[in-house]
């Protein structure tokens, strides 16, 4: 009995020694693997960090503004499509959308493209508890999804409803899995974070017009730098003086009484070259019909 017990103890000791050795070696191998992985991560993180720092720094000596000529919009929705494909948005998510507007019963309806207004005094950035959304030196209001915690305070604060939330897996989440997050493009989109119009900050860095502006077939959008007092039409590529354009056409901003000072200006739907044609129905109209 005792002998048996002894051998078993010896066996046990041997086994435990071997196991400890194995664990140490295995641990060493694993930790070295882990080390190489973290190094990889560091190199990736650096580029992500670079993206984040670049995203927070505005383009020097620029102050971007957009002018939208309501008399030319005929709801082609090319701006919406170009934007959604560039920023990998689901069909129900909009950075820019065109709305059918009618101000009063006897006024003429018109179409209104509405991006983010990149306010000079943005209410959305004030409420962010983690500093994920910010205003840059060139006037753009962007969001860093790596920092966003998805509290949606900014959605509540924005009077223009310019922000949307990634409630579901983003559109190209499988394809974008390995991409490094770009603050200026907001790709890959991340579930549980905010997404918003960026004035195509990545294109502006390359001195190109935003996606929506260059996609419009009807010359609705003007975009440019206020310091230069010049805006360029995305369709005709004609450059005009910003102050002249606003002065001659009676340009205005939306909800200026809130003190937000938007960077997007509208020209009234006057002398329209396209008649207002809308064959579909708004959800409100359908609802009213059902109630009747």
């Amino acid at each position: 009995m005792e002998k048996e017990n002894l051998t078993s103890r010896r066996d046990f000791l041997k086994l435990s020694l071997a196991a400890t050795g194995l664990t140490i070696i295995g641990g060493g191998i694993l930790s070295s693997l882990g080390c190489s992985k973290t190094q990889n991560e560091i190199s990736q993180e650096k580029t992500l960090q670079e993206n984040q720092t670049q995203g927070r720094e505005g383009i020097k000596n620029k102050r971007f503004a957009m002018v939208i000529d309501l008399s030319r919009c005929r709801n082609a929705r090319k701006c919406v499509a170009a934007c959604q494909s560039a920023h990998h948005l689901r069909p129900e998510q909009f950075h820019i959308n065109t709305y059918r507007m009618q101000d009063a019963e006897f006024t003429q309806p018109y179409f209104l493209p509405k991006p983010c207004f990149h306010c000079e005094n943005p209410p959305c950035t004030k409420v962010c508890p983690v500093g994920a959304t910010f205003k840059r030196s060139d006037g753009l209001v962007l969001i860093d999804n790596e920092r966003c915690i998805g509290c949606r305070f900014c959605i509540a604060a924005c009077p223009y409803s310019a922000r949307s939330f990634n409630w579901f897996e983003p559109k190209d989440s499988e394809k974008d899995k390995d991409k490094i997050y770009d603050v200026e493009l907001n790709v890959p989109q991340k579930k549980g974070t905010i997404t918003k119009c960026l004035f195509s900050a990545d294109r502006l860095r390359q001195n190109e017009l935003p996606y929506c502006v260059s996609a419009c077939p009807n010359g609705v959008f003007y975009f440019g730098d206020l310091y230069e007092d010049a805006v360029t039409n995305g369709t005709t590529k004609e450059t005009v003086s910003f102050s002249e354009l606003i002065r001659q056409n009676g340009g205005y901003t939306l909800m200026e009484d809130l003190g937000t000072k938007p960077s997007v200006y509208y020209l009234p739907p006057k002398n329209r070259i396209f008649p207002f044609i809308y064959e579909g129905k708004t959800s409100l109209e359908k609802q009213n019909e059902e109630e009747d």
Partner: peptide, 8 residues
């Protein structure tokens, strides 16, 4: 010359 085009 302006940022996105030529101003006449």
């Amino acid at each position: 010359k302006r940022n996105f085009g030529l101003l006449l």
